[in-house]
Design a protein around this nucleic acid. Structure first.
Lengths: 113, 113
DNA sequence: TTTGTATACATAAGATATCTATGTATATTC
DNA sequence: GAATATACATAGATATCTTATGTATACAAA
């Protein structure tokens, strides 16, 4: 990996929920696929670095939010993640929280809301 | 001060911009007033702790974003802050950034956007 | 009269999330 | 054979915020 990405400091706190939401919407995904998909979905705005992504996935796994199955494709390993029952419950709560956060933040930074 | 506030982890990265925006909208404010005003504007959602607020104000001051004048009211000191020219420029950029962030985040967590 | 609440500032120490940097390895394109 | 893309991993640094604590005045309630 040669390309370095730059992330916004605003990211902080939202990464876990972003990952969980991607998994909710796509059933199962592997790490690299998540970064590509998030980048695409946000028109290049959100670029998740590997140093952020993999530790985050491991943490979510430790918390019991993710289920894993490994697959070898083109002689390269892929670690597929999907939401566990616990993860499915968590993603709903976290999205509600993020939407509430966005709403409150808009009340400050957006005129006429 | 006896009441302890709880902040969301989502806050991270937005505090400086929130402070600058409040100052932009209100001309000049003192620290305590900012916390009250932010809490009121967000219907109790954003509760800025003193341990977050004052260090943030000091940092923004060091960066040259703020102008200060002290005032004694009811025998209590107030430190009034207002935006410097540099702060005025910064707040515009940071709000644009936050709005772009909100937009991208919505693309992920909100269906049909 | 002292207890609690509100106002008003400040800072040290700790937690934690993310970034930077680095490492391994395979496949494909130039 | 050099660069790019795919695919994982982790140690160490950094930044931001929280928790905890401190000082001080004013006022209401008990």
């Amino acid at each position: 990996m040669y390309i370095r990405y730059m992330n916004s400091k605003l990211f902080r706190g939202t990464l876990d929920t972003i990952i969980l939401t991607m998994l909710r919407d796509n059933g199962k995904m592997y790490g690299y696929e998540i970064t590509k998909s998030v980048k695409e979905k946000t028109n290049g705005e959100f670029k998740i670095t590997e140093g952020s992504l993999y530790p985050a996935l491991h943490k979510l796994e430790r918390k019991g939010y993710l289920e894993i199955h490994l697959l070898k494709v083109d002689n390269r390993m892929r670690k597929y993640y999907s939401l566990s029952k616990k993860g499915n419950k968590a993603v709903k709560e976290e999205i509600t929280e993020i939407q509430s956060f966005i709403h409150s933040l808009s009340l400050i930074v957006n005129p006429n809301t």
